[in-house]
Amino acid sequence: MRKIAYVFGALAAAGAGTYLVVYLYRWQWQRAMICGVLLLVVEVMLFGLVTLGRLNRIEERLRDTDRRQRELDARQEDVLTRLREPGAAREETRFRWLDDPADRTYVFVPVLMVAGVVLSGLAWVVQKAASATARPAERHLAGRLAVLAAPDPAAPGGLDELDDLPPLGAGSSRRRTARVTTVIALATALLAALIVGLANLTQTRAEDANENAATSVVVQVDLRGPEMTSDRRALAAQQIWESCRHSTAAPLRHAALGDLGDGMFAGVVRPALNEHDLMRLRGCLEDATLERAHLTVVAVGDAESGND
């Protein structure tokens, strides 16, 4: 599901970025700003998805680390128990003669009997002191040996999952290296082509002057709403036309707009506009922000000198 979201997000970002460049090239600023905002939203969404994925992976690693630590503690306790088994067996077999049945009689010299009791007490004290001081060493030794202990087959990640592991050195195969190299080369070529294309489109060039006398622009005005009268259309067309007179490099001093009927209007610009100014004027007219009004450039033409 996350991969599908990544794919759709990447496609949406690519589309928004492409139309952002297209609308900037056409001088349609409102549409360019909308695409820019959409691109920003998609980028924030992709950043959130990537961050969420990283956090999930960190959480999984923490759980895996806790599980491994618990398994290591269990192995350590197991090894410690095995190390203590011989000592416990010796403690059980110490002074077996004291457990003999009482019906047997022994002849002891009182002095030897007292000496034996004293020596036994001293031996018991030495044994307790030795066992108390040896426990940290045993635990340390068990911790070092726990790494060498075999994993529990029933535990997750035990012997049953060893067969699923890839062979040693499989990650650095030649095929993977070739694929990574090919992808990097293609990405570099696409990035270079994109940079060259944008530089070519956005390069400032000297415009050739238009030798014609005037430029005519035919536009159609569409209004959305219940009151779509001819007066409202004429007013909307005049407002849009006046707002776009400052979008060209050459000032449009003699730029009258006439009504042709049926929502069609014709504007005549003198002197004639060059290609760049005409593109800016078309972009401004079609990207107008007048409420409930949309203007479409139907035709553009130049009038030669001497024509009406």
Rank of each mutant, 00 (worst) to 15 (best):
A255E: 00
D152K: 01
V114T: 10
C244N: 02
G158E: 08
P226K: 10
G121L: 14
V117I: 15
A134R: 06
R31C: 01
T215W: 01
V183Y: 07
I195S: 10
T81V: 08
T18A: 15
D164N: 05
V109P: 08
A12R: 05
L62N: 15
L49V: 15
A115I: 12
M1D: 03
V126A: 15
R68L: 13
R292Y: 09
R280F: 00
D99S: 15
D100M: 15
A236K: 02
S247V: 05
L39P: 00
V109I: 05
A199F: 04
G225M: 08
D73M: 07
T182G: 14
S131P: 00
A192K: 03
S120C: 08
D66M: 14
I4L: 13
G158L: 05
L72T: 09
L80R: 11
E275H: 06
T177P: 00
R70N: 06
Q76C: 07
Y19R: 06
A5S: 07
A193C: 04
E286M: 08
P271K: 03
Q127R: 15
R96M: 12
R175C: 04
V218H: 06
V268C: 09
L273Y: 04
T296C: 04
R104T: 07
V42N: 12
V180A: 14
L223A: 03
L162H: 10
H294Y: 13
P251V: 01
T93D: 08
E207Q: 12
R139P: 00
T204Q: 09
D208Y: 09
V183S: 09
R61M: 11
Q239G: 01
A214Y: 02
V79M: 07
L148H: 06
Q127H: 15
E85M: 05
L122K: 02
L235C: 03
C244R: 09
A170M: 04
L257F: 01
V118F: 10
N307T: 15
D308K: 10
N200M: 14
A150K: 09
A14G: 04
D100W: 14
A189F: 09
L252W: 01
R90F: 15
N210C: 03
Q127I: 05
V298K: 11
E275Q: 10
F265E: 00
Q203M: 07
V44I: 13
S173D: 05
I240T: 03
W124Q: 14
D103Q: 05
P151C: 01
A209V: 11
R82H: 07
R280T: 03
S216W: 06
F8T: 09
H276L: 08
D73L: 12
D208F: 03
L145P: 00
P166H: 05
G158H: 04
D163Q: 13
T289N: 07
L39M: 08
G17W: 06
M1N: 03
T18E: 08
L194F: 14
G225W: 02
L72I: 08
